[in-house]
């Protein structure tokens, strides 16, 4: 069986009119305008301040820069900031995934309320959150007094920093994972069940890999936010140099001392760390999504 050949397009092989070859016609309208506006704002709001920061830090000589960023007090602040952020992110990974899971897969009374509460850390001024957490966890607070009996101190310790960080960054994981879980095809799970998979193996082999890109995105946002968090932490941390002083606070202290260059130098370390971390998670995400590439 043969079908007749398609009619030959008369224009297909014609040489392009003069000038036509230069400018390809686009289907989607509005590129120059929207791109222009976007780039202008990215430049104004994001690049300019960061550029000023880098510029300020760069105005120090390399030796002075290194002396400031590698001082014992600064290094101690990196350690407590990064370790607390890691711990907070790890906590949020488990708890945020569980929260998203429960919100998507089950219905229970008060579900919409819980769903709304998840966003509260975004809406609450972080200083308010810090004061509230400090009140709760202070040795005479509700949680603090109970915990004191078991010998655990939260307020004015790195643990307090971790609590404040996980409070402010929890919504990132929930809100990135939730839509992916909602879109998950329920027949995938049924298929895995008919093939004899246990709940555990279905979750680990079938569902978790599909959540991976979203989880990574949530993790990197949560970690980046924790690195830069300030308001919620300074109330609960105690801010003892060398033990509970976070990097953002150290930069702020230098600023109050009118030592703008040192403040910029310390802030630039945070900036570089956040940038490297986001780049790393982007690479991991691309790997986790490699199956979507058409070949």
């Amino acid at each position: 069986m043969e079908s007749s050949p398609p009619p030959r397009s008369a224009t297909r092989n014609d040489p392009p009119h003069k000038g036509e070859g230069k400018k390809r016609r686009r289907v989607l309208p509005g590129l120059p305008l929207s791109l222009g506006i976007t780039l202008f704002y990215v430049g104004l709001i994001v690049v300019l301040p960061l550029g000023a920061l880098v510029f300020k830090a760069a105005s120090l000589g390399p030796e002075d820069y290194w002396r400031i960023v590698s001082s014992a007090r600064a290094v101690a602040s990196y350690r407590v900031t990064v370790l607390s952020a890691l711990a907070a992110t790890a906590f949020n990974l488990v708890f945020g995934l569980a929260l998203a899971w429960v919100l998507v897969r089950y219905s229970f009374p008060g579900k919409r309320l819980v769903d709304a509460i998840v966003d509260l850390p975004f809406a609450l001024p972080t200083a308010v959150a810090g004061i509230a957490l400090t009140t709760l966890f202070a040795p005479n607070g509700w949680f603090g007094s109970a915990l004191a009996e078991t010998g655990v101190k939260v307020a004015y310790t790195p643990l307090g920093i971790m609590v404040a960080m996980s409070f402010t960054s929890l919504p990132f994981i929930v809100r990135t994972v939730q839509p992916v879980l909602e879109d998950l095809d329920p027949t995938l799970e049924e298929a895995a069940q008919t093939l004899g998979g246990s709940d555990r193996s279905i979750f680990l082999r079938g569902i978790l890999p599909l959540l991976m890109p979203a989880l990574l995105a949530g993790l990197s946002l949560s970690f980046a936010r924790s690195l830069g968090e300030f308001g919620a932490i300074i109330f609960i941390a105690g801010n003892q140099p060398m033990s509970t002083e976070i990097t953002a606070l150290l930069a702020f202290i230098r600023l109050e001392e009118y030592d703008y260059q040192a403040a910029a130098a310390i802030a630039s370390v945070l900036l570089i760390a956040a940038f490297l971390m986001l780049a790393a998670t982007n690479i991991l995400q691309a790997r986790a999504l490699r199956y979507t590439a058409r070949g």
Partner: peptide, 19 residues
Amino acid sequence: VRDRGVGFVFQHYALFPHM
């Protein structure tokens, strides 16, 4: 279902996209 020993084919395939 997991112990019933059936093979099930779904209308929209339900293949694991990451495998």
